[in-house]
Amino acid sequence: MYVVSIDADKCEGCGECIDACPAGILGMVDGKAEVTGAETDCMGCETCVVTCPNEACTLQEL
């Protein structure tokens, strides 16, 4: 299982990670990206990590 985290201090709300996430678990809340879907649906593909220009997304395998 994988868990994606988004650092709100680094996130500038560009939406790149949201558009790129194939699992569709990321969404915009108050101008920042957040995990809005089921965390267990994360596929661990690291697409959000790679596409984020501010290195706000991190992925951890549990």
Rank of each mutant, 00 (worst) to 15 (best):
M1G: 05
Y2W: 15
V3N: 13
V4T: 04
V4W: 01
V4Y: 03
S5H: 12
D7Y: 04
A8D: 15
D9F: 14
K10T: 06
C11G: 09
C11H: 06
E12R: 15
E12I: 14
G13W: 02
C14Q: 04
G15A: 10
G15R: 04
G15S: 06
E16F: 13
E16I: 07
E16W: 10
E16H: 11
C17S: 01
C17F: 00
C17P: 01
I18K: 02
I18F: 00
D19W: 05
A20N: 01
C21E: 01
P22K: 01
A23V: 01
G24E: 03
G24M: 00
G24F: 00
G24W: 02
G24K: 00
L26V: 04
L26M: 15
L26I: 11
L26W: 02
L26P: 00
G27Q: 06
G27L: 09
G27V: 06
G27E: 04
D30T: 03
D30N: 11
G31A: 05
K32Y: 07
K32E: 10
K32F: 09
K32I: 07
K32C: 09
A33I: 07
E34G: 03
V35Q: 11
V35F: 00
V35R: 07
T36N: 06
T36Y: 09
T36A: 05
G37N: 08
G37S: 05
G37A: 05
G37I: 00
A38T: 11
A38Y: 10
E39G: 15
D41V: 01
D41T: 06
D41A: 08
D41L: 07
D41M: 11
C42Y: 04
C42R: 01
C42G: 03
M43C: 12
G44A: 11
G44R: 13
C45F: 08
C45S: 11
E46T: 12
E46S: 11
E46F: 10
T47Y: 10
C48V: 02
C48Y: 01
V50A: 12
T51S: 07
C52G: 07
C52P: 10
P53W: 13
P53R: 14
N54K: 11
N54M: 15
N54D: 12
N54I: 01
E55N: 12
A56Y: 08
A56I: 02
A56E: 10
C57R: 07
T58S: 14
L59N: 02
L59I: 15
Q60A: 15
L62E: 14
L62D: 13
L62N: 08
